[in-house]
Nucleic acid binder design. Sequence first.
RNA 1: GGAGAAGUACCCAAGUGGCUCAAGGGGCUCCCCUGCUAAGGGAGUAGUAUGGGAAAACCGUAGCGAGGGUUCGAAUCCCUCCUUCUCCGCCA
Length: 428
Amino acid sequence: MIDIKLILADPDGVKAKLAKKGCEVDFAKVAELDAKRRELIKKNDELKNERNKASAEVPALKKAGKDVSAVIARTKAIGEEIAAGDKALAAVETELNDFICALPNLPDDDVVAGGKEANEVIKVVGKKPEFGFKPLDHVTLCTKHGLIDYERGVKLSGSGHWIYRGMGARLEWALLNFFIEEHLGDGYEFIMPPLALGYNCGYGSGQFPKFRDEVYWIENAEAEGDKKKMKFMLPTAETALVNLYSGEIMKESDLPKKLFAYTPCFRKEAGSYRSEERGMIRGHQFNKVEMVQITTPEQSKAAFEELVGKACSLVEKLGLHFRLSKLAAGDCSASMARTYDIEVWIPSMGIYKEVSSVSNANDYQARRNGTRFKSSVTGKNEFVHTLNGSGLATSRVLPAIVEQYQQADGSIVVPEALRKYVGTDIIK
RNA sequence: GGAGAAGUACCCAAGUGGCUCAAGGGGCUCCCCUGCUAAGGGAGUAGUAUGGGAAAACCGUAGCGAGGGUUCGAAUCCCUCCUUCUCCGCCA
Protein backbone atom coordinates (compact mmCIF):
# COMPACT_ATOMS: atom_id res chain seq x y z
CA MET A 1 0.00 0.00 0.00
CA ILE A 2 1.04 3.59 -0.47
CA ASP A 3 2.36 5.48 2.54
CA ILE A 4 -0.45 7.70 3.74
CA LYS A 5 2.10 10.30 4.79
CA LEU A 6 3.17 10.62 1.18
CA ILE A 7 -0.42 11.12 0.09
CA LEU A 8 -0.96 13.82 2.70
CA ALA A 9 2.32 15.56 1.95
CA ASP A 10 2.09 15.50 -1.83
CA PRO A 11 -1.41 14.57 -3.02
CA ASP A 12 -0.93 16.03 -6.48
CA GLY A 13 2.36 14.21 -7.04
CA VAL A 14 0.81 10.89 -6.03
CA LYS A 15 -2.23 11.64 -8.15
CA ALA A 16 -0.06 12.27 -11.21
CA LYS A 17 1.80 9.00 -10.73
CA LEU A 18 -1.38 7.00 -10.31
CA ALA A 19 -2.75 8.64 -13.44
CA LYS A 20 0.02 6.94 -15.37
CA LYS A 21 -1.64 3.67 -14.43
CA GLY A 22 -4.97 5.03 -15.57
CA CYS A 23 -6.15 5.38 -12.00
CA GLU A 24 -8.16 8.49 -11.16
CA VAL A 25 -8.35 9.37 -7.50
CA ASP A 26 -9.56 12.13 -5.26
CA PHE A 27 -7.56 12.56 -2.09
CA ALA A 28 -9.77 15.21 -0.50
CA LYS A 29 -11.46 12.43 1.42
CA VAL A 30 -8.14 11.10 2.72
CA ALA A 31 -7.11 14.44 4.19
CA GLU A 32 -10.51 14.82 5.73
CA LEU A 33 -10.58 11.35 7.22
CA ASP A 34 -7.04 11.68 8.50
CA ALA A 35 -7.82 14.96 10.23
CA LYS A 36 -10.84 13.35 11.80
CA ARG A 37 -8.75 10.39 12.84
CA ARG A 38 -6.14 12.55 14.56
CA GLU A 39 -8.77 14.55 16.32
CA LEU A 40 -10.44 11.41 17.65
CA ILE A 41 -7.14 9.92 18.77
CA LYS A 42 -6.16 13.06 20.58
CA LYS A 43 -9.45 13.36 22.36
CA ASN A 44 -9.54 9.70 23.28
CA ASP A 45 -5.96 9.64 24.52
CA GLU A 46 -6.71 12.57 26.76
CA LEU A 47 -9.78 10.85 28.13
CA LYS A 48 -7.83 7.66 28.73
CA ASN A 49 -5.15 9.59 30.53
CA GLU A 50 -7.79 11.16 32.73
CA ARG A 51 -9.34 7.82 33.49
CA ASN A 52 -6.00 6.20 34.27
CA LYS A 53 -5.19 8.94 36.72
CA ALA A 54 -8.57 8.88 38.42
CA SER A 55 -8.57 5.11 38.58
CA ALA A 56 -5.18 5.12 40.24
CA GLU A 57 -6.59 7.13 43.11
CA VAL A 58 -9.07 4.44 44.05
CA PRO A 59 -6.80 2.06 45.97
CA ALA A 60 -5.27 4.90 47.99
CA LEU A 61 -8.70 6.27 48.90
CA LYS A 62 -9.94 2.83 49.81
CA LYS A 63 -6.97 2.27 52.06
CA ALA A 64 -7.64 5.55 53.80
CA GLY A 65 -11.19 4.38 54.36
CA LYS A 66 -12.68 7.14 52.26
CA ASP A 67 -15.67 6.98 49.99
CA VAL A 68 -14.76 6.14 46.39
CA SER A 69 -18.17 6.25 44.80
CA ALA A 70 -17.66 9.76 43.40
CA VAL A 71 -14.42 8.79 41.66
CA ILE A 72 -15.93 5.61 40.31
CA ALA A 73 -18.93 7.45 38.96
CA ARG A 74 -16.64 9.85 37.19
CA THR A 75 -14.42 7.19 35.65
CA LYS A 76 -17.47 5.27 34.58
CA ALA A 77 -18.76 8.30 32.73
CA ILE A 78 -15.37 8.80 31.10
CA GLY A 79 -15.32 5.13 30.16
CA GLU A 80 -18.57 5.48 28.28
CA GLU A 81 -17.23 8.45 26.39
CA ILE A 82 -14.08 6.48 25.51
CA ALA A 83 -16.12 3.55 24.22
CA ALA A 84 -18.04 5.86 21.93
CA GLY A 85 -14.84 7.52 20.77
CA ASP A 86 -13.16 4.18 20.06
CA LYS A 87 -16.10 3.12 17.97
CA ALA A 88 -16.02 6.32 15.95
CA LEU A 89 -12.27 5.99 15.50
CA ALA A 90 -12.52 2.41 14.32
CA ALA A 91 -15.07 3.43 11.71
CA VAL A 92 -12.86 6.24 10.41
CA GLU A 93 -9.77 4.04 10.34
CA THR A 94 -11.59 1.28 8.49
CA GLU A 95 -12.82 3.72 5.88
CA LEU A 96 -9.38 5.26 5.49
CA ASN A 97 -7.66 1.90 5.34
CA ASP A 98 -10.08 0.49 2.79
CA PHE A 99 -9.43 3.46 0.55
CA ILE A 100 -5.64 3.34 0.81
CA CYS A 101 -5.47 -0.43 0.37
CA ALA A 102 -7.44 -0.29 -2.83
CA LEU A 103 -4.88 2.01 -4.45
CA PRO A 104 -2.33 0.41 -6.77
CA ASN A 105 1.39 0.95 -6.34
CA LEU A 106 3.05 4.05 -7.73
CA PRO A 107 4.97 3.40 -10.94
CA ASP A 108 8.66 4.32 -10.98
CA ASP A 109 9.49 7.69 -12.52
CA ASP A 110 10.96 6.18 -15.69
CA VAL A 111 7.94 3.99 -16.34
CA VAL A 112 5.81 5.58 -19.03
CA ALA A 113 2.09 6.17 -18.82
CA GLY A 114 -0.39 4.11 -20.77
CA GLY A 115 -1.36 0.50 -21.35
CA LYS A 116 -0.05 -2.41 -23.40
CA GLU A 117 0.31 -0.26 -26.52
CA ALA A 118 2.95 1.86 -24.74
CA ASN A 119 5.18 -1.10 -23.83
CA GLU A 120 8.70 -0.79 -25.11
CA VAL A 121 10.76 -3.64 -26.51
CA ILE A 122 14.20 -3.28 -24.94
CA LYS A 123 15.99 -6.08 -26.66
CA VAL A 124 15.47 -9.00 -28.97
CA VAL A 125 17.58 -12.10 -28.64
CA GLY A 126 18.02 -14.63 -31.43
CA LYS A 127 16.00 -14.80 -34.59
CA LYS A 128 12.72 -16.27 -35.66
CA PRO A 129 13.61 -19.77 -36.81
CA GLU A 130 13.12 -20.34 -40.51
CA PHE A 131 11.84 -23.71 -41.47
CA GLY A 132 12.43 -25.23 -44.89
CA PHE A 133 9.17 -27.07 -44.40
CA LYS A 134 5.71 -26.41 -43.06
CA PRO A 135 6.16 -26.27 -39.30
CA LEU A 136 3.63 -27.87 -36.99
CA ASP A 137 2.07 -26.26 -33.97
CA HIS A 138 2.94 -27.52 -30.50
CA VAL A 139 -0.42 -29.17 -29.91
CA THR A 140 0.07 -31.34 -32.98
CA LEU A 141 3.69 -32.04 -32.13
CA CYS A 142 3.03 -32.85 -28.47
CA THR A 143 0.13 -35.11 -29.37
CA LYS A 144 2.08 -36.82 -32.10
CA HIS A 145 4.97 -37.65 -29.78
CA GLY A 146 2.73 -38.45 -26.82
CA LEU A 147 4.27 -35.68 -24.76
CA ILE A 148 1.01 -34.17 -23.65
CA ASP A 149 -2.37 -35.83 -23.21
CA TYR A 150 -4.81 -32.98 -23.64
CA GLU A 151 -7.99 -35.02 -23.90
CA ARG A 152 -7.51 -37.08 -20.78
CA GLY A 153 -6.43 -33.97 -18.88
CA VAL A 154 -9.81 -32.48 -19.69
CA LYS A 155 -11.51 -35.74 -18.74
CA LEU A 156 -9.90 -35.68 -15.32
CA SER A 157 -10.31 -32.03 -14.47
CA GLY A 158 -12.06 -30.05 -17.19
CA SER A 159 -10.80 -27.58 -19.74
CA GLY A 160 -7.48 -25.90 -19.14
CA HIS A 161 -5.88 -29.04 -17.75
CA TRP A 162 -3.45 -31.34 -19.46
CA ILE A 163 -1.26 -34.28 -18.57
CA TYR A 164 2.46 -34.49 -19.15
CA ARG A 165 3.34 -38.03 -20.18
CA GLY A 166 6.45 -39.99 -20.82
CA MET A 167 9.02 -37.91 -22.64
CA GLY A 168 6.80 -34.85 -22.19
CA ALA A 169 6.93 -35.26 -18.43
CA ARG A 170 10.69 -35.75 -18.65
CA LEU A 171 11.07 -32.61 -20.70
CA GLU A 172 8.95 -30.64 -18.24
CA TRP A 173 10.91 -32.07 -15.32
CA ALA A 174 14.14 -31.33 -17.10
CA LEU A 175 13.19 -27.67 -17.44
CA LEU A 176 12.41 -27.42 -13.76
CA ASN A 177 15.67 -29.13 -12.87
CA PHE A 178 17.59 -26.86 -15.16
CA PHE A 179 16.06 -23.73 -13.61
CA ILE A 180 16.61 -25.00 -10.08
CA GLU A 181 20.26 -25.81 -10.72
CA GLU A 182 20.83 -22.38 -12.21
CA HIS A 183 19.34 -20.61 -9.19
CA LEU A 184 21.24 -22.81 -6.76
CA GLY A 185 24.38 -21.94 -8.67
CA ASP A 186 23.63 -18.26 -8.13
CA GLY A 187 23.31 -18.78 -4.38
CA TYR A 188 19.53 -18.55 -4.12
CA GLU A 189 17.79 -20.52 -1.36
CA PHE A 190 15.38 -23.23 -2.50
CA ILE A 191 11.96 -22.91 -0.83
CA MET A 192 9.07 -25.32 -1.04
CA PRO A 193 6.09 -23.49 0.44
CA PRO A 194 2.59 -24.71 1.25
CA LEU A 195 0.40 -24.73 -1.85
CA ALA A 196 -2.70 -23.70 0.06
CA LEU A 197 -2.38 -20.31 1.68
CA GLY A 198 -4.35 -18.20 4.14
CA TYR A 199 -6.10 -14.98 3.18
CA ASN A 200 -3.36 -12.87 4.77
CA CYS A 201 -0.88 -14.00 2.11
CA GLY A 202 -3.12 -12.79 -0.68
CA TYR A 203 -3.59 -9.51 1.07
CA GLY A 204 0.08 -9.13 1.93
CA SER A 205 1.18 -9.61 -1.64
CA GLY A 206 -1.34 -7.02 -2.85
CA GLN A 207 -3.41 -9.50 -4.84
CA PHE A 208 -6.40 -9.33 -2.50
CA PRO A 209 -9.03 -8.08 -2.18
CA LYS A 210 -9.05 -7.23 -5.89
CA PHE A 211 -8.21 -10.67 -7.27
CA ARG A 212 -9.79 -12.88 -4.67
CA ASP A 213 -12.22 -14.23 -7.23
CA GLU A 214 -9.44 -15.32 -9.56
CA VAL A 215 -8.01 -17.99 -7.31
CA TYR A 216 -9.37 -21.35 -6.22
CA TRP A 217 -10.73 -21.35 -2.70
CA ILE A 218 -10.72 -24.40 -0.52
CA GLU A 219 -13.83 -24.09 1.52
CA ASN A 220 -13.93 -25.36 5.04
CA ALA A 221 -17.52 -26.43 5.64
CA GLU A 222 -17.19 -25.97 9.38
CA ALA A 223 -15.82 -22.47 9.04
CA GLU A 224 -18.41 -21.20 6.64
CA GLY A 225 -18.50 -17.46 6.31
CA ASP A 226 -15.21 -16.99 8.09
CA LYS A 227 -12.71 -15.78 5.52
CA LYS A 228 -9.75 -16.32 7.75
CA LYS A 229 -10.33 -20.01 7.91
CA MET A 230 -10.50 -20.47 4.18
CA LYS A 231 -7.47 -21.25 2.14
CA PHE A 232 -6.69 -20.73 -1.49
CA MET A 233 -4.45 -22.53 -3.93
CA LEU A 234 -1.50 -20.28 -4.67
CA PRO A 235 -1.65 -18.57 -8.06
CA THR A 236 2.13 -18.02 -7.99
CA ALA A 237 4.85 -18.77 -5.45
CA GLU A 238 5.32 -15.02 -5.13
CA THR A 239 2.23 -15.00 -2.95
CA ALA A 240 3.96 -17.26 -0.46
CA LEU A 241 7.51 -15.94 -0.74
CA VAL A 242 6.89 -12.23 -0.27
CA ASN A 243 5.03 -13.08 2.93
CA LEU A 244 7.79 -15.29 4.29
CA TYR A 245 9.05 -12.67 6.72
CA SER A 246 5.77 -10.79 7.23
CA GLY A 247 5.45 -9.18 10.62
CA GLU A 248 9.16 -9.62 11.25
CA ILE A 249 12.06 -7.26 11.60
CA MET A 250 14.87 -8.66 9.49
CA LYS A 251 18.55 -8.13 10.03
CA GLU A 252 20.11 -5.75 7.56
CA SER A 253 22.99 -8.19 7.20
CA ASP A 254 20.55 -10.84 5.94
CA LEU A 255 19.59 -8.64 3.00
CA PRO A 256 19.33 -9.04 0.13
CA LYS A 257 17.53 -12.31 0.73
CA LYS A 258 17.54 -14.36 -2.46
CA LEU A 259 14.92 -17.07 -2.72
CA PHE A 260 13.31 -19.25 -5.29
CA ALA A 261 10.55 -21.81 -5.21
CA TYR A 262 9.16 -24.42 -7.49
CA THR A 263 5.39 -24.79 -7.26
CA PRO A 264 2.48 -25.60 -9.45
CA CYS A 265 0.34 -22.48 -9.84
CA PHE A 266 -3.44 -22.47 -9.88
CA ARG A 267 -5.55 -19.84 -11.58
CA LYS A 268 -9.15 -19.62 -12.64
CA GLU A 269 -8.33 -17.55 -15.73
CA ALA A 270 -12.02 -16.90 -16.08
CA GLY A 271 -12.99 -15.28 -19.35
CA SER A 272 -9.45 -14.88 -20.54
CA TYR A 273 -9.43 -17.57 -23.16
CA ARG A 274 -8.66 -16.53 -26.67
CA SER A 275 -9.42 -18.66 -29.62
CA GLU A 276 -5.79 -18.96 -30.67
CA GLU A 277 -4.64 -20.06 -27.24
CA ARG A 278 -4.75 -23.76 -27.79
CA GLY A 279 -2.76 -26.28 -25.93
CA MET A 280 -0.85 -25.20 -22.92
CA ILE A 281 -0.55 -21.48 -23.43
CA ARG A 282 -3.03 -20.73 -20.68
CA GLY A 283 -4.14 -23.33 -18.19
CA HIS A 284 -5.64 -23.53 -14.74
CA GLN A 285 -2.57 -25.28 -13.43
CA PHE A 286 0.99 -24.80 -14.57
CA ASN A 287 4.48 -25.24 -13.21
CA LYS A 288 6.67 -22.32 -12.35
CA VAL A 289 9.95 -21.63 -10.68
CA GLU A 290 9.70 -18.24 -9.04
CA MET A 291 12.53 -16.00 -7.88
CA VAL A 292 12.08 -13.49 -5.08
CA GLN A 293 14.45 -10.99 -3.56
CA ILE A 294 13.87 -9.14 -0.33
CA THR A 295 16.16 -6.13 -0.18
CA THR A 296 16.87 -2.77 1.39
CA PRO A 297 15.63 0.23 -0.63
CA GLU A 298 19.22 0.90 -1.70
CA GLN A 299 19.67 -2.63 -3.06
CA SER A 300 16.43 -2.95 -4.94
CA LYS A 301 17.44 -1.41 -8.27
CA ALA A 302 20.44 -3.69 -8.62
CA ALA A 303 18.34 -6.65 -7.53
CA PHE A 304 15.86 -5.90 -10.29
CA GLU A 305 18.59 -5.88 -12.92
CA GLU A 306 19.93 -9.13 -11.52
CA LEU A 307 16.54 -10.82 -11.76
CA VAL A 308 15.96 -9.60 -15.31
CA GLY A 309 19.42 -10.82 -16.25
CA LYS A 310 18.81 -14.22 -14.71
CA ALA A 311 15.48 -14.69 -16.44
CA CYS A 312 16.95 -13.68 -19.82
CA SER A 313 19.89 -15.95 -19.30
CA LEU A 314 17.64 -18.97 -18.78
CA VAL A 315 15.76 -18.42 -22.03
CA GLU A 316 19.00 -17.70 -23.82
CA LYS A 317 20.66 -20.87 -22.54
CA LEU A 318 17.69 -22.81 -23.90
CA GLY A 319 18.49 -21.29 -27.28
CA LEU A 320 15.07 -19.75 -27.70
CA HIS A 321 14.25 -16.62 -29.64
CA PHE A 322 12.67 -14.06 -27.33
CA ARG A 323 12.31 -10.38 -26.59
CA LEU A 324 12.42 -8.30 -23.45
CA SER A 325 9.81 -5.60 -22.93
CA LYS A 326 9.51 -2.83 -20.42
CA LEU A 327 5.88 -2.50 -19.51
CA ALA A 328 4.04 0.79 -19.42
CA ALA A 329 2.53 1.77 -16.09
CA GLY A 330 -0.96 0.58 -16.93
CA ASP A 331 0.22 -2.88 -17.97
CA CYS A 332 2.11 -3.50 -14.71
CA SER A 333 0.05 -5.31 -12.11
CA ALA A 334 -1.42 -3.26 -9.31
CA SER A 335 1.27 -4.03 -6.73
CA MET A 336 4.21 -3.28 -8.97
CA ALA A 337 6.24 -0.14 -9.58
CA ARG A 338 7.97 -1.59 -12.64
CA THR A 339 7.76 -4.75 -14.67
CA TYR A 340 9.78 -6.25 -17.51
CA ASP A 341 8.33 -9.14 -19.47
CA ILE A 342 10.24 -11.79 -21.31
CA GLU A 343 8.26 -13.10 -24.22
CA VAL A 344 9.19 -16.12 -26.22
CA TRP A 345 8.38 -16.66 -29.88
CA ILE A 346 5.65 -19.17 -30.61
CA PRO A 347 5.95 -19.83 -34.39
CA SER A 348 2.50 -21.35 -34.85
CA MET A 349 0.81 -18.38 -33.24
CA GLY A 350 3.08 -15.84 -34.84
CA ILE A 351 3.34 -13.92 -31.58
CA TYR A 352 5.51 -13.62 -28.51
CA LYS A 353 4.11 -15.06 -25.28
CA GLU A 354 5.19 -14.20 -21.77
CA VAL A 355 7.42 -16.75 -20.05
CA SER A 356 8.69 -14.48 -17.33
CA SER A 357 7.59 -11.31 -15.67
CA VAL A 358 10.07 -9.55 -13.43
CA SER A 359 8.76 -6.87 -11.12
CA ASN A 360 9.78 -4.56 -8.34
CA ALA A 361 7.09 -3.79 -5.79
CA ASN A 362 9.34 -1.41 -3.85
CA ASP A 363 7.84 -1.21 -0.35
CA TYR A 364 4.23 -1.69 -1.47
CA GLN A 365 3.94 -5.34 -0.46
CA ALA A 366 6.13 -4.92 2.63
CA ARG A 367 3.79 -2.23 3.93
CA ARG A 368 0.85 -4.55 3.53
CA ASN A 369 2.45 -7.53 5.21
CA GLY A 370 4.72 -5.74 7.66
CA THR A 371 8.18 -6.88 6.60
CA ARG A 372 10.84 -4.53 7.98
CA PHE A 373 14.50 -4.37 8.76
CA LYS A 374 16.62 -2.30 11.11
CA SER A 375 18.33 0.21 8.87
CA SER A 376 21.85 1.34 9.61
CA VAL A 377 21.20 4.33 7.35
CA THR A 378 18.29 5.78 9.29
CA GLY A 379 18.72 3.83 12.53
CA LYS A 380 15.05 2.95 12.35
CA ASN A 381 12.95 0.05 11.23
CA GLU A 382 12.23 0.49 7.57
CA PHE A 383 10.13 -1.48 5.14
CA VAL A 384 12.00 -3.82 2.84
CA HIS A 385 11.61 -3.88 -0.91
CA THR A 386 10.26 -7.02 -2.52
CA LEU A 387 10.98 -8.16 -6.05
CA ASN A 388 9.85 -11.18 -7.95
CA GLY A 389 10.42 -12.76 -11.30
CA SER A 390 9.49 -16.00 -12.94
CA GLY A 391 12.50 -18.07 -13.59
CA LEU A 392 10.65 -19.51 -15.48
CA ALA A 393 7.08 -20.62 -16.06
CA THR A 394 7.27 -23.81 -18.11
CA SER A 395 3.88 -23.85 -19.76
CA ARG A 396 5.00 -21.61 -22.61
CA VAL A 397 8.63 -22.60 -22.65
CA LEU A 398 7.81 -26.16 -23.55
CA PRO A 399 5.60 -25.20 -26.52
CA ALA A 400 8.29 -22.77 -27.65
CA ILE A 401 10.95 -25.46 -27.46
CA VAL A 402 8.82 -28.01 -29.27
CA GLU A 403 7.96 -25.56 -32.03
CA GLN A 404 11.31 -23.80 -32.39
CA TYR A 405 13.31 -27.04 -32.27
CA GLN A 406 11.13 -29.12 -34.60
CA GLN A 407 12.81 -30.79 -37.56
CA ALA A 408 11.62 -31.57 -41.06
CA ASP A 409 10.97 -35.22 -40.14
CA GLY A 410 8.74 -34.16 -37.24
CA SER A 411 11.32 -34.96 -34.59
CA ILE A 412 12.27 -32.46 -31.90
CA VAL A 413 15.84 -31.67 -30.97
CA VAL A 414 16.34 -31.35 -27.22
CA PRO A 415 18.11 -28.11 -26.28
CA GLU A 416 21.70 -28.71 -25.22
CA ALA A 417 21.10 -27.43 -21.68
CA LEU A 418 18.38 -30.01 -21.06
CA ARG A 419 19.99 -33.12 -22.51
CA LYS A 420 21.53 -34.37 -19.30
CA TYR A 421 18.12 -34.21 -17.63
CA VAL A 422 16.03 -35.59 -20.47
CA GLY A 423 18.47 -38.35 -21.25
CA THR A 424 18.27 -37.94 -25.01
CA ASP A 425 19.31 -35.55 -27.76
CA ILE A 426 16.24 -35.88 -29.87
CA ILE A 427 12.62 -36.82 -29.45
CA LYS A 428 11.44 -38.96 -32.34
C1' G B 1 -10.14 -35.58 15.11
C1' G B 2 -10.24 -36.03 20.92
C1' A B 3 -8.15 -34.94 25.99
C1' G B 4 -4.75 -32.22 29.05
C1' A B 5 -0.91 -28.35 29.81
C1' A B 6 1.33 -24.00 28.29
C1' G B 7 2.31 -19.01 25.60
C1' U B 8 4.90 -12.63 29.92
C1' A B 9 10.59 -8.44 27.00
C1' C B 10 16.98 -10.88 23.63
C1' C B 11 16.67 -15.64 26.97
C1' C B 12 14.83 -17.86 31.67
C1' A B 13 11.04 -16.55 34.84
C1' A B 14 7.55 -14.33 39.26
C1' G B 15 2.85 -12.71 39.13
C1' U B 16 -5.49 -15.23 40.49
C1' G B 17 -8.58 -7.60 40.21
C1' G B 18 -5.69 -1.68 42.36
C1' C B 19 1.85 0.35 46.04
C1' U B 20 3.16 -4.23 39.03
C1' C B 21 2.37 2.55 34.37
C1' A B 22 5.33 -6.22 34.86
C1' A B 23 9.42 -8.52 40.32
C1' G B 24 13.96 -11.30 39.98
C1' G B 25 17.84 -13.68 37.24
C1' G B 26 20.88 -14.45 32.77
C1' G B 27 22.74 -11.99 28.61
C1' C B 28 24.00 -7.43 26.39
C1' U B 29 25.68 -1.97 26.64
C1' C B 30 28.16 1.76 29.43
C1' C B 31 30.90 3.34 33.81
C1' C B 32 34.09 2.36 38.19
C1' C B 33 37.83 -0.68 40.52
C1' U B 34 41.65 -3.89 39.28
C1' G B 35 44.97 -4.48 35.78
C1' C B 36 46.67 -6.61 29.94
C1' U B 37 43.49 -13.52 30.34
C1' A B 38 40.04 -13.55 35.99
C1' A B 39 36.89 -11.48 39.59
C1' G B 40 34.07 -7.57 41.93
C1' G B 41 30.91 -2.95 42.26
C1' G B 42 27.39 0.54 39.89
C1' A B 43 24.00 2.16 36.09
C1' G B 44 21.05 1.14 31.77
C1' U B 45 18.16 -2.43 29.00
C1' A B 46 10.04 -2.73 26.00
C1' G B 47 11.31 -3.17 21.24
C1' U B 48 7.41 -1.25 18.46
C1' A B 49 3.14 1.43 16.77
C1' U B 50 0.71 5.84 17.33
C1' G B 51 -1.16 11.22 19.03
C1' G B 52 0.64 16.12 20.53
C1' G B 53 5.05 19.16 19.57
C1' A B 54 9.12 23.08 14.80
C1' A B 55 11.78 19.40 17.63
C1' A B 56 16.71 15.11 18.73
C1' A B 57 14.22 16.80 23.98
C1' C B 58 9.57 16.35 26.30
C1' C B 59 4.26 14.82 27.44
C1' G B 60 0.47 11.13 26.36
C1' U B 61 -1.95 6.44 24.38
C1' A B 62 -1.74 1.23 23.12
C1' G B 63 0.99 -3.19 24.13
C1' C B 64 1.87 -9.75 28.88
C1' G B 65 0.13 -15.25 21.84
C1' A B 66 -4.34 -12.66 18.74
C1' G B 67 -9.24 -10.66 18.93
C1' G B 68 -13.57 -9.59 21.73
C1' G B 69 -16.16 -9.09 26.65
C1' U B 70 -16.93 -8.09 32.11
C1' U B 71 -15.13 -3.97 35.45
C1' C B 72 -14.31 2.55 37.83
C1' G B 73 -9.73 -0.45 37.01
C1' A B 74 -7.48 -6.76 33.64
C1' A B 75 -1.11 -10.11 32.68
C1' U B 76 -4.83 -11.72 36.35
C1' C B 77 -11.95 -13.13 35.45
C1' C B 78 -15.17 -14.75 30.91
C1' C B 79 -15.67 -16.03 25.45
C1' U B 80 -13.57 -17.11 20.52
C1' C B 81 -9.29 -18.14 17.82
C1' C B 82 -3.90 -19.24 16.87
C1' U B 83 0.57 -21.71 18.17
C1' U B 84 3.64 -25.16 20.99
C1' C B 85 4.21 -29.53 24.12
C1' U B 86 2.30 -34.38 26.15
C1' C B 87 -1.07 -38.41 25.54
C1' C B 88 -4.91 -40.90 22.57
C1' G B 89 -7.25 -41.79 17.79
C1' C B 90 -6.83 -41.93 12.43
C1' C B 91 -3.75 -42.35 8.25
C1' A B 92 -1.08 -41.90 2.27
